[in-house]
Design a protein around this nucleic acid. Structure first.
Length: 289
DNA sequence: CACTTGACCTGTCCGC
DNA sequence: TGCGGACAGGTCAAGT
């Protein structure tokens, strides 16, 4: 579920916590979660300090002083939770974290730092991964070569959205919003939310959308993403920030996971269907097929 | 080539 | 209460 706002929230949280800390050890329980460990781990990870935490699309980049970077994709259930080592859990020690003592049974990779703090990569479904590679080679990953523009970047406009979407003119607009090569960072939640905002039905073919509709959709995308970042992302089930705490955008969602409830714009009952293989939430009155 | 569907996983929820 | 199956949804491989 982590989409751009969730990954950005994790990034900003880690950027406030990690830079300057020196890695002292790395453990992992599942080769799939950390495919190239331990080949370069001892030489380029242990003993290196964190320089910067960055994000591109839904991918996190932890840059190290060794000129290597950890590249991390949370996929659906991945979590990155930092612990200073002084937190208390259980009776008599209230803690806002949704996550209890770590490591737990979902912990796939643990980074320990010389000051005793730790960073845990938890991933219930094992779809996510951590890779270690030279920072200079990150841009050469297939994903980074193909991925589209950042929707909150200065060079992203309604015109750019329309032009790039038209590369898939015979696809429905929801599938195209989810296509990371068209634009970066949109997933199921913010696709549904922005299409509702723009009053566009998700099955509408790209070639049938007007320039005006692309302008409205662009505005809604930007607006929804900014609000979601402000709210710390959406916690439906698994997502937590770098401190293990939930995001609150779901309290502000207009259609996502609100089937059976009233559309906040017209009062009609929100329905759930299936579009592009995903659960899809729409107002049948505001969003005409 | 354009586009859609299935696989990857595990936990949860629903109906019987 | 147990059990099978549907579902969750990011990305890539395989299929149409």
């Amino acid at each position: 579920m982590p989409e751009l706002p969730e990954v950005e929230t994790v990034r900003s949280g880690l950027q406030a916590l990690l830079p300057g800390r020196i890695v002292s050890s790395v453990t992992h329980d599942n080769p799939k979660s950390f495919p190239n460990a331990p080949a370069d781990v001892q030489q380029f990870l242990v003993g290196a300090s964190v320089v910067l935490v960055a994000r591109r699309a839904k991918v996190l980049l932890i840059e190290l002083s060794s000129k290597y970077s950890l590249v991390i994709h949370l996929k659906m259930t991945g979590q990155l939770v930092f612990r200073s080592g002084n937190e208390r859990f259980g009776a008599g020690h209230p803690n806002e974290s949704l996550i209890g003592e770590l490591p737990d049974k979902s912990t796939r990779v643990t980074l320990a730092f010389e000051d005793g703090s730790q960073l845990f990569f938890n991933d219930q479904r094992k779809f996510g991964w951590v890779r270690l590679m030279p920072t200079a080679e990150v841009v050469n990953l297939d994903f980074f070569k193909k991925v589209g523009p950042e929707p909150l970047g200065a060079d992203f406009t309604a015109k750019v959205l329309q032009e790039r979407a038209l590369r898939r003119k015979n696809s429905n607009i929801k599938a195209v919003l989810l296509d990371q090569t068209v634009l970066a960072g949109i997933g199921n939640i913010y696709a549904d939310e922005s299409l509702w905002g723009a009053k566009i039905h998700p099955t509408t073919l790209v070639k049938d959308l007007s320039t005006k509709q692309f302008e409205v959709l662009y505005e809604e995308l930007v607006c929804v993403l900014k609000l979601a970042i402000e709210k710390g992302g959406s916690t439906d089930k698994n997502y937590v920030n770098a401190e293990g705490k939930r995001g609150s955008y779901m309290d502000f969602a207009r259609v996502f996971r609100r089937e059976g409830q009233a559309c906040p714009r017209c009062g009609s009952t929100i329905i759930k269907t299936r579009v592009a293989g995903r659960g899809t939430h729409t107002c049948p009155v505001c969003q005409k097929a």
